[in-house]
C-alpha cells in the first residue's frame, strides 16, 4: 500500500466519523420541516454528544465488565466498517482485511455485543430490546447478504472496492436485478438503523422501542459512544447504498484530481438521501412488532428474486 492510499484511507475514516452526527442532524431537521416545526438545527447532535461526554457515567450496580467495554467495541467496529466502505475513492488499503461478507459479520459483531450488554443489567426493557433487535437482525442480515451477492455476481468479486469500480466504470448496462436489490437494501437500511417503520428513533413510549430499549441503561460517555456509533452506522449504510446503486462520481485508485468532484458528489448524494429518509419516515407509520417480520421477509424475498433474475438473464446471454 502506498502512503497516498493510506492517507486517503485515514482521511475517509476521519471524515466519516466526524460528519456522522451531521447526517443525523440533517435528517432530523428535514423531518422537522416536513412536520412544520422549526427544528433544533443540524448541529444539535454535536451538542448532545458534547454534553454527554462531559457528564459522569452512571452504571447500574449489577452491570459487569461486558457492559462497560461494549460501547468501545461497538464504536470501534463501526470505525472499521467505515474504513471498508468506498466513500470518496475505491482504493482502500484496509479493505483487504474484510470483504462484504466480513463487513456484514462486523456489523453483526457490534450488534451482538450491544444485545449482550442490554441483557447484562437484567432489566425488563433491556432484555426485550435485545430480543427484538436480534429478531429484526436475524431477518435483515440474510437480506443484506443477498443484496450484496447481486453486485458481487456482476463484478465477480466480493471485495467492495472491486465491486464499486466495476459498477461505476462499466458502460451503462441496465441490470433489472439491481433494482430488486436496491429496494431490498432500502428496506434493510430502515430496519437496521432503527427507523420507521420498524423502530422509532424519537419514541418515548417504552413498549415500542427496540434500539432505545437496548441502550436505556447507558449514560454519559458510554451513551455518547453508542449514539455516535449509531450515527456512524447510518453513514455507513448510506454510503454503501450510494456506492452500490449510485456510484457515479467516485474517484478511482490514484485519481487525485477526481477527489474534489467525489467530495461534491457524495455530499449532494448524502443530502438527497437524508432528505429522502426524512420523507419516508414522515409518510409512513410504525409497524406493530409482529408485522416487522413480514416487512423484512419481503426485503429478503426481493433480494433473492434479484439474484434469481440475474442468473436467469445471465443464463440467456
Amino acid at each position: 500500500m502506498s502512503p497516498g492510499d493510506l492517507f486517503q484511507q485515514v482521511l475517509e475514516v476521519v471524515i466519516a466519523v466526524f460528519i456522522a452526527p451531521l447526517l443525523v442532524g440533517w435528517v432530523n431537521q428535514c423531518r422537522a420541516w416536513l412536520q412544520n416545526r422549526t427544528g433544533a438545527g443540524i448541529w444539535q447532535p454535536y451538542q448532545v454528544l458534547h454534553k454527554l461526554f462531559r457528564k459522569d457515567a452512571v452504571v447500574a450496580h449489577n452491570a459487569s465488565g461486558l457492559f462497560r467495554v461494549t460501547p468501545y467495541i461497538v464504536f470501534a467496529s463501526m470505525v472499521l466498517a467505515a474504513s471498508l466502505v468506498p466513500m470518496l475513492a475505491t482504493a482502500l488499503p484496509f479493505a483487504a482485511a474484510a470483504d462484504v461478507i466480513a463487513l456484514v459479520g462486523l456489523l453483526a459483531l457490534a450488534r451482538v455485543f450491544m444485545a449482550l450488554a442490554a441483557m447484562d443489567v437484567g432489566t425488563a426493557f433491556g432484555s426485550f430490546g435485545a430480543r427484538r433487535e436480534m429478531l429484526v437482525a436475524a431477518l435483515a442480515e440474510p437480506a443484506l447478504l443477498m443484496v450484496f451477492f447481486m453486485p458481487a455476481l456482476i463484478a465477480r468479486s466480493t471485495s467492495l472496492g472491486t465491486i464499486v469500480e466495476a459498477l461505476a466504470h462499466r458502460p451503462f448496462v441496465l441490470h433489472p436485478s439491481l433494482a430488486f436489490a436496491a429496494v431490498a437494501f432500502v428496506m434493510v437500511l430502515l430496519a437496521e438503523n432503527a427507523r420507521i417503520p420498524i423502530d422509532n428513533p424519537t419514541t418515548h413510549l417504552e413498549l415500542t422501542m427496540i434500539h432505545e430499549a437496548m441502550i436505556l441503561e447507558y449514560s454519559g460517555r458510554h451513551l455518547a459512544l453508542m449514539e455516535w456509533a449509531h450515527a456512524l452506522k447510518l453513514v455507513i449504510y448510506s454510503t454503501i447504498g450510494i456506492a452500490l446503486f449510485l456510484p457515479w462520481g467516485i474517484a478511482e485508485a490514484g485519481d487525485w484530481p477526481g477527489l474534489p468532484l467525489a467530495v461534491l458528489a457524495i455530499t449532494l448524494k448524502l443530502l438527497a438521501g437524508g432528505a429522502a429518509l426524512a420523507v419516508v419516515e414522515s409518510v409512513s407509520a410504525k409497524l406493530r412488532i409482529f408485522r416487522a417480520p413480514e416487512f423484512l421477509a419481503s426485503a429478503f424475498l426481493f433480494a433473492v428474486l434479484g439474484v434469481l433474475t440475474h442468473l436467469l438473464l445471465a443464463g440467456r446471454a
Binding site: 461526554f53 468501545y72 470501534a76 417504552e206 460517555r221
Partner: peptide, 25 residues
C-alpha cells in the same frame, strides 16, 4: 480503534463513573 477511542475519551474528557440502581425507565 478501541484503544484510541478509550484514550481519546479519557484525555479529552474524563473517566468518572458512578454506580446507581438500574434505571429501567
Amino acid at each position: 480503534a478501541v484503544l484510541a477511542t478509550f484514550a481519546y475519551v479519557r484525555v479529552r474528557h474524563h473517566g468518572r463513573l458512578r454506580r446507581a440502581p438500574a434505571w429501567d425507565c
